Simulated assay, not measured.
Amino acid sequence: MSALIGGELAASEAGVVPATIRKWVQLGHLRPAGHRGRALLYRLEDVFAAERAARRRPAGLGAPAAGGHSGHGDAPAAG
């Protein structure tokens, strides 16, 4: 059986902030393996797998591209 670690240590090991661990759980990339009181616990190998999956996803999905056109400004009006 693998040792279980808390969210802060999991974040530190993956090089992210604890909010990222919570986001991975919310998105289904990471599942808690247990809990201690209200604190969720994770397997380190699961944390690393979620981190690898996050790197494979294209960055900025749903966000406007830097320097992209916002739909306002100098563009001529259609018509």
Results as ranks from 00 to 15, higher is better:
residue 41 L to C: 04
residue 65 A to Q: 14
residue 39 A to C: 02
residue 52 R to G: 01
residue 9 L to A: 12
residue 13 E to P: 00
residue 45 E to L: 05
residue 63 A to C: 02
residue 9 L to G: 01
residue 54 A to C: 04
residue 8 E to S: 06
residue 49 A to S: 13
residue 54 A to Q: 00
residue 41 L to A: 02
residue 39 A to K: 06
residue 50 A to T: 04
residue 44 L to Y: 06
residue 56 R to W: 04
residue 77 A to H: 05
residue 49 A to T: 15
residue 73 G to S: 08
residue 77 A to F: 10
residue 12 S to V: 01
residue 36 R to N: 10
residue 58 P to N: 08
residue 63 A to W: 01
residue 10 A to Y: 05
residue 59 A to E: 11
residue 20 T to P: 01
residue 33 A to H: 06
residue 68 G to A: 15
residue 38 R to P: 03
residue 33 A to D: 04
residue 22 R to F: 02
residue 62 G to R: 06
residue 57 R to Y: 00
residue 72 H to F: 15
residue 11 A to R: 13
residue 67 G to E: 07
residue 53 A to I: 04
residue 1 M to P: 10
residue 49 A to C: 09
residue 77 A to T: 06
residue 33 A to I: 01
residue 27 L to C: 05
residue 29 H to Q: 12
residue 10 A to G: 06
residue 61 L to S: 08
residue 4 L to F: 10
residue 24 W to Q: 04
residue 29 H to D: 15
residue 9 L to I: 00
residue 19 A to L: 11
residue 17 V to P: 00
residue 2 S to F: 09
residue 21 I to S: 01
residue 19 A to V: 07
residue 30 L to E: 04
residue 15 G to Y: 05
residue 54 A to G: 01
residue 5 I to D: 06
residue 60 G to D: 15
residue 27 L to K: 12
residue 6 G to N: 15
residue 40 L to I: 02
residue 27 L to T: 09
residue 75 A to G: 12
residue 45 E to V: 14
residue 43 R to F: 01
residue 9 L to R: 15
residue 31 R to H: 08
residue 55 R to K: 13
residue 36 R to V: 00
residue 29 H to Y: 14
residue 53 A to M: 08
residue 30 L to C: 06
residue 26 Q to A: 13
residue 69 H to G: 06
residue 2 S to M: 12
residue 59 A to M: 08
residue 36 R to S: 11
residue 33 A to C: 04
residue 48 F to S: 02
residue 70 S to I: 04
residue 54 A to D: 04
residue 35 H to P: 00
residue 3 A to L: 11
